[in-house]
């Protein structure tokens, strides 16, 4: 008796999380409180996402975990190993082969399918939190659909910077009812929030779960004269030459040389394998 229960959590905890997920799907964008458990990793490392994944996984699933688009960073590797050990599920780095994808701060470049589920790790689920610190007040604002403050914030962006400067965690309006924080994904990913896959969001420290069913209307907040723009660095990937992917900027040396690479490592790898070449392809990038 020294094995873990399937997917680590005990059954009663999973039932509690599953009930929260179902209510979250029934009211898209609404933050359902849940009794988040201590997980064997610190808050801020994806405890919410891990709990949602644990309640969602079945033995047949293939799990992919990404951290800022990458499959090979500490957070992603640790969580993948965690579920290999506790749930015995297959894992993959290929978006195509995954049935459940847990993500921190990115949506994969490849279009997700009907049979896939994406689980987001969320640090601060409340989009209004930095505008109104009191939970009692933000709950009331959501109940009254009182989102003027958020528009004031975006307006102040424009008055100070000439454009909406919010670049990540860009607030969205879900199914014409709730303003929702899409987790700190770059706003480049916002248009992908209307997708074929089921989207689940877990915030462990803040004890909230929310969801977007497939094909749900998700609108990024904006103004008629300052429409929403999904921005990215004005470059191509230096490794695979992709023009349409979200890029990370990497400083190469003290002389200010830099390169841009796809943040989605699987997308970049599959393009390079298909023969696409970027500016620095073939060079020793070290």
């Amino acid at each position: 008796m020294n094995e873990y229960n399937f997917a680590y959590l005990d059954e009663q905890t999973k039932r509690m999380i599953r009930r929260a997920i179902l209510k979250g799907l029934a009211v898209p964008g609404y933050q359902v409180p849940f009794a988040s458990r201590e997980m064997p990793m610190p808050y801020g490392w994806g405890t919410g996402g891990v709990q949602v994944s644990a309640a969602t996984l079945t033995p047949k699933d293939t799990l992919k975990v990404i951290d800022q688009g990458a499959d090979d960073t500490t957070n992603a590797v640790s969580i993948r190993k965690f579920f290999e050990n506790t749930a015995g599920v297959e894992t993959t780095e290929e978006t195509e082969k995954a049935t459940v994808i847990q993500t921190r701060h990115r949506i994969p470049e490849a279009k997700l399918r009907e049979d896939q589920i994406i689980v987001y790790q969320v640090p601060i689920p409340e989009p209004l939190r930095f505008l109104e610190p009191r939970e009692t007040e933000t709950r009331k604002m959501h109940s009254l659909e009182e989102y003027g403050l958020m528009h004031v914030k975006l307006y102040e962006d424009i008055s100070q910077h000439g454009a909406i400067s919010t670049a990540y965690a860009y607030p969205v309006y879900v199914s014409d009812r709730y303003v929702m924080d899409p987790s700190p994904i770059p706003k480049f990913d916002n248009p992908k929030l209307e997708m074929d896959a089921i989207q689940l969001f877990g915030a462990g420290r803040e004890q909230r779960i929310y969801a977007i069913p497939p094909h749900t209307k998700v609108v990024s907040l904006d103004f008629e004269d300052y429409p929403f723009e999904a921005t990215k660095a004005e470059h191509c990937c230096d490794l695979c030459g992709a023009e349409d992917s979200y890029l990370d900027e990497v400083i190469m040396d003290d002389a200010g040389n830099r390169m841009f690479v796809c943040s989605d490592t699987d997308y970049c790898r599959s393009r390079r394998e298909a023969g696409h070449m970027g500016r620095l392809a073939g060079e020793n990038a070290a």
Binding site: F6, A7, K14, R18, T56, L57, T58, P59, I198, A211
Partner: peptide
């Protein structure tokens, strides 16, 4: 086998609630 059967059952329940 509660952990496995409940996981499969929940996946079906979640799928129909989401669709």
């Amino acid at each position: 086998n509660a952990p496995i059967q409940a996981a499969r059952a929940f996946r079906a329940a979640m799928t129909v609630m989401a669709r």
